[in-house]
Write a protein that binds this DNA or RNA. Structure first.
Lengths: 130, 130
DNA sequence: TATTGTTATACTCTATAACTATA
DNA sequence: TATAGTTATAGAGTATAACAATA
């Protein structure tokens, strides 16, 4: 049953990423950086559940495409904050819009199931924090 | 909300895969091959939503570890069927057992929410076939 | 001393293109 | 002609180890 929460979603994520000429980790990185809320690179590493060294390369490639930029932390000079550029913000909005439509298996459910599912998942996300 | 269906599950999948010294695509491949039901390599490519050429390498590495083997299709000599070895079957059982425990966000839900979620997801999986 | 991020390295995943064998 | 799988290649993701800068 739990495979639904990851394996079954992979084709959809691969397709959406490819539509924007991005990889899934790049999409996750862009989604993680909210407008006017730069994120430290260490936060991205936690979000991706990968080693911090990988974030350097992912950031390099997104920065080269002009989607985000490295900024300084106001007080800690070790930390690099990632902020979306205007192009990055626009792409992020398109990504979110694209991801708004539920996958076909969800759309095939009854309206009651769909709303119940949404409510339960929202409650689950609250439990787990950002 | 939908990010829950993939992004939020990634750390868990990365961790489980690493526990068994496997990669997520390798885990997905092993999970896809049911006992006594060999799967053609083309089916794995669809399941992973990747090009068929990638399955060659993934299969090579799993075969080298003795977890699965290539067999011939009874009638179509182009097709290679992937079957788990006894070691692969045992590993698959451990993986399924390991994945049986829901993630902490789910366990934090009320029992009613948990059963409702399980029922809805099972219905969703029925809609989408194998 | 500990933490953040980078660099170098080796392995894996990924798509594309060209290929062989078979249908 | 079309399909299943392989090989070669280049780019991206991944962990590990060593490192510099900063806390």
């Amino acid at each position: 049953m739990q495979e639904f929460l990851f394996s079954r979603q992979r084709p959809r994520w691969m397709a959406i990423s490819a539509e924007f000429d991005l990889t899934p980790p790049q999409v996750m990185t862009i989604n993680r950086i909210e407008p006017d809320r730069p994120a430290p690179m260490s936060d991205i590493a936690k979000w991706l559940a990968c080693d911090a060294s990988n974030v350097t390369g992912i950031t390099d490639r997104l920065e080269k495409r002009g989607l985000l930029e490295r900024r300084n932390h106001p007080s800690d000079r070790r930390v690099r904050m990632l902020a979306l550029t205007p192009e990055g913000l626009e792409l992020r909005a398109e990504l979110q819009e694209r991801g708004r439509t539920p996958p076909p298996e969800i759309l095939a459910l009854s309206p009651e199931d769909q709303t119940a599912l949404r409510d339960i998942l929202l409650r689950a996300m609250e439990k787990s924090g950002r």
